[in-house]
Structure formats: structure tokens, C-alpha cells
């Protein structure tokens, strides 16, 4: 019996190997040029002191000292913590809110309109987003503080108070991210066969039961995707903190990518910046494996 199972598995393996590689060929060819080469290059750079102005061959070899420097650097560790907080909050809030809204909008009247409106932040240029949220977050006559004032609460320095700034940026990030996630969830919802819901209705299941027993489980491949790519992206976040957090004490809002960017192109320490990028890669890699493992333990098929 076991033998038979084994052989049938072998057979299906063999049957597809050629086709599999054929379908992957364009991607693999691309990655060998535009990923493997740059990564090897950057790894070599990370063991050197290179200011990008002298030829790399003349740069001094420093071994792994930039790695150990970073792991002992207070700034880098602080920046890692900020990024971890940012990633955890942004991803969990964005997906939860996007899921609820996508379900509410799916099948609602004027759903095309709503979907477009929620997607608007994705197409709105950074400048407009920055300006508006700047208005909202103003300490003096900003909208948020005006609301707080109505309730007799103390005004908050949303973008300059070191204890608050990171969370203000997270709020904006969630706001900006909902649309994209909603779009993907909606595409997933369209893949759920309608007769599952019909059957549930016949059994007398209300909207909440339908949501938890049909929608969420059947969306799991989509949710896995959003969680994994959400974290991968959030760990590398750059734009929003960089543009919104400029007046906050940097230690309270700086992220790893920002640190890498600044080290590379302002301090001209490409070696240290590359080392930072590799450390970030290791963290994201382990973190992603962890997420896939959690999803798998939760019985969700997605990564096998």
C-alpha cells in the first residue's frame, strides 16, 4: 500500500518536472541577472568600506566588522524595534479592517463606487496624502485636536511627540493600505462559490456565522498572501516615515530602510548599508517562515 502511494507520487513528480521548469524559466532567468548578481555584489560590498567613489577593488576589506558594528549599534537596534512595532500594528489592522469592509461592500448597492473610493488613497500621490494628514495632525488648528478639544481633552502633538509620532504614521499607513488589501480580498471573495452561502442560509446560519465559517476559511490562501507580503513590505517601509517623521526625534520613528538609505547615500557608507540590508533580509526571512508555520498549524493550506 505504502509502496503504491509512493510510486504514484513519484509518477506525478516525474510527469511535471519538465513542464514545471519550462513555466518557471522566464522568472528564473530574470532572477539570476537582476537578483542573484546584485545580491552577491552587495554581499561583497558589505565586507568592505566603500564610499561608492573609489573603485570597489580599491575599497578596504573589513570582513564582517560592519555586521558586528550594527548588532551593537544602539541606533540600529532602536530602528529595528520601531520597524517591528510598525509592521505588527500596520499589517494586523490593515488586513482586519480591509476584510470587514470588503465583505460589507461585496454585494452592497453601488459597490463599484465604494470600491473605487476605498481604493482612492492608493492612486492619490504622496504629496496630497502628506498635506492632508499634515492638516489633520496639526497641533494648533488641526482637525483631530479640534475634536479632542470638543471633549475637553488635552491637545496631542501628533507628529512631533516622540511617544506618539510612530503611531500617527501607522494610522496613516493603515488608511493608505486598506484599499489595496480590499481589492485582493474582493478578488478572493469572487472565487468563493455562491452555493456554499446558499446552503448555509438553508441551514439557518446568520451573516456572522457565514463570515466565520465560510468566508474566512475559504479566503485563507488570500489572507496568507496578504499577511506574508504585508509583513515583507512593512519591514522595509520607507516612504511614509521618511516624509511624515522628519520633524520627530529620529529615534522614535526611523525605520530600517530609512537607516539603510541614510547610511548609504548620506553617510556614503555603502558597506555598512549593505550589511544592514542583509541583516534585515535574515530577519524578514525568519519572520516569514514563522508566519507560514503559524498559518500551517492553524490548518490553513497555503504553503504546504
Amino acid at each position: 500500500m505504502a509502496c503504491k502511494l509512493f510510486s504514484s507520487k513519484r509518477k506525478s513528480l516525474e510527469r511535471n518536472t519538465g513542464a514545471g521548469y519550462l513555466f518557471l524559466a522566464p522568472a528564473l532567468l530574470f532572477y539570476s541577472l537582476f537578483f542573484i548578481y546584485p545580491v552577491i555584489f552587495s554581499f561583497i560590498v558589505s565586507t568592505k568600506r566603500w564610499n561608492m567613489l573609489v573603485p570597489l577593488s580599491r575599497a578596504r576589506n573589513v570582513g564582517f566588522s560592519e555586521y558586528s558594528y550594527l548588532l551593537k549599534d544602539e541606533m540600529f537596534l532602536g530602528v529595528l524595534t520601531n520597524t517591528l512595532i510598525y509592521a505588527l500594528l500596520t499589517v494586523s489592522l490593515t488586513i482586519t479592517i480591509a476584510l470587514i469592509l470588503a465583505v460589507l461592500i461585496n454585494g452592497a448597492k453601488l459597490s463599484v463606487l465604494w470600491r473605487f473610493i476605498y481604493f482612492a488613497p492608493v492612486v492619490t500621490p504622496q504629496v496630497a496624502i502628506g498635506t492632508i494628514w499634515g492638516y489633520l495632525y496639526r497641533p494648533n488648528n488641526g482637525l483631530l485636536n479640534s475634536i479632542l478639544r470638543l471633549f475637553g481633552m488635552k491637545p496631542v502633538y501628533w507628529l512631533t511627540d516622540p511617544n506618539v509620532a510612530l503611531f500617527s504614521i501607522i494610522a496613516t499607513a493603515v488608511w493608505a493600505g486598506i484599499g489595496g488589501s480590499m481589492l485582493i480580498i474582493t478578488a478572493g471573495l469572487k472565487n468563493i462559490p455562491q452555493d456554499y452561502y446558499d446552503a448555509a442560509k438553508i441551514d439557518g446560519a446568520g451573516p456572522f456565522r457565514q463570515f466565520f465559517y465560510i468566508t474566512v476559511p475559504l479566503l485563507s490562501p488570500t489572507l496568507l498572501f496578504l499577511t506574508a507580503t504585508g509583513f515583507i513590505g512593512a519591514w522595509q517601509v520607507f516612504d511614509l516615515p521618511f516624509t511624515m517623521g522628519r520633524n520627530a526625534p529620529a529615534r522614535s520613528v526611523m525605520t530600517v530602510s530609512w537607516y539603510v538609505y541614510e547610511t548609504a547615500f548620506q553617510s556614503l557608507r555603502m558597506g555598512r548599508a549593505s550589511a544592514g540590508a542583509f541583516l534585515l533580509f535574515c530577519i524578514i526571512f525568519v519572520f516569514t517562515l514563522l508566519i507560514l508555520w503559524i498559518f500551517k498549524r492553524g490548518g490553513i493550506k497555503g504553503y504546504e
Binding site: 511535471n16 518536472t17 514545471g20 518557471l24 528564473l28 537582476f34 546584485p38 538609505y261 549593505s274 534585515l280
Partner: peptide, 28 residues
Amino acid sequence: LRFRGRRILFSFVLSTMMFPVFIFLIPV
């Protein structure tokens, strides 16, 4: 499709998303 190295290759594809864009600028 079932083929040898599928899981490793898929992990590889995921890992291509995990480096900050700034280190690609010079080599590319």
C-alpha cells in the same frame, strides 16, 4: 505542477522580495 525543488524555488521567489531596494540601484 509537481517537480523537484519546488518548495526551495518558491522560498527563493519569496526571498527576492526581502531586500531593501536601495542595494539594487548600483548593480542594476
